[in-house]
Amino acid sequence: MVNLIDRGGAVTTTTSISAAERRWRDRVVSQAAHSSAMEGLASSPEYRADSAAYVDGTIDIDELGRRTLGRYGIV
């Protein structure tokens, strides 16, 4: 289930996810972090917070992508 919350012009997406989906998201995010670390890269605190929100189901993958791209002015 997806809920959209209007916070004064900014819409926040919240998603109810199953325990299995949460475990899968956690594994995927952990694998991506490990892959980056193996390449000598480090994620920013902002990205880590956003990816934790994704794992918890607070945001969906599209919002994670928008936030990441927006942070670097790529959007």
Rank of each mutant, 00 (worst) to 15 (best):
Ala37Glu: 15
Ala33Arg: 14
Val11Pro: 04
Gly40Lys: 05
His34Gly: 14
Ala42Asp: 06
Gln31Thr: 01
Asn3Ile: 13
Gly65His: 05
Ser16Arg: 04
Ile74Asn: 00
Ala49Tyr: 04
Ile74Ala: 04
His34Ser: 15
Met1Leu: 05
Leu4Ile: 14
Thr13Ala: 13
Ile59Thr: 08
Gly40Thr: 05
Val11Ile: 15
Ser36Ile: 04
Gly40Cys: 03
Ala49Arg: 15
Thr58Ala: 12
Ser16Trp: 03
Thr58Ile: 15
Asp60Trp: 02
Thr14Met: 07
Ser30Phe: 00
Arg27Met: 02
Gly8Val: 09
Met38His: 04
Asp60Glu: 11
Arg48Trp: 03
Ser16Cys: 00
Arg25Ile: 05
Tyr72Gly: 00
Ala32Ser: 15
Arg71Thr: 03
Glu21Pro: 00
Thr13Trp: 03
Arg22Ile: 02
Ala20Leu: 10
Ser43Leu: 08
Asp56Lys: 11
Asp6His: 06
Gly57Thr: 07
Arg67Gly: 02
Ala49Glu: 15
Ala53Thr: 02
Ile17Glu: 02
Ala37Gly: 12
Met1Ser: 05
Ala32His: 08
Gly9Ala: 12
Arg23Ile: 09
Thr15Asn: 08
Ile17Trp: 03
Glu21Lys: 11
Asp56His: 06
Leu41Asp: 10
Val55Trp: 05
Arg22Ala: 06
Ala10Lys: 13
Tyr47Arg: 14
Arg25Glu: 07
Thr15His: 01
Glu21Phe: 02
Arg25Phe: 01
Gly57Leu: 04
Val55Tyr: 08
Asp60Cys: 06
Tyr72Met: 01
Arg25His: 11
Ile61Thr: 07
Ile61Asp: 05
Gly40Glu: 05
Arg22Tyr: 02
Glu46Gly: 06
Tyr47Glu: 13
Asp26Pro: 00
Glu46Arg: 13
Arg71Gln: 10
Glu63Asn: 05
Arg27Cys: 00
Gly40Ile: 05
Ser44Tyr: 04
Leu41Val: 02
Ser43Lys: 07
Ser30Glu: 11
Trp24Glu: 13
Thr14Ile: 09
Arg27Pro: 00
Thr14Val: 12
Asp62Tyr: 11
Arg23His: 11
Leu4Met: 07
Gly40Pro: 01
Asn3His: 07
Asn3Arg: 11
Ala33His: 07
Trp24Asn: 06
Ala42Ser: 13
Gly57Asp: 03
Arg71Met: 11
Ala52Met: 03
Ser51His: 01
Ser35Glu: 10
Val11Met: 11
Ile59Met: 06
Gly9Ile: 13
Leu4His: 04
Asp62Pro: 00
Glu39Asn: 08
Ala42Lys: 11
Val75Leu: 09
Thr68Ile: 02
Thr15Glu: 10
Asp26Arg: 13
Ser30Val: 04
Thr13Phe: 02
Ala19Lys: 07
Ala32Trp: 10
Arg48Ser: 14
Gly65Gln: 07
Asp50Tyr: 10
Ala19Val: 10
Arg67Glu: 06
Asp6Asn: 15
Leu41Asn: 06
Gly8Pro: 02
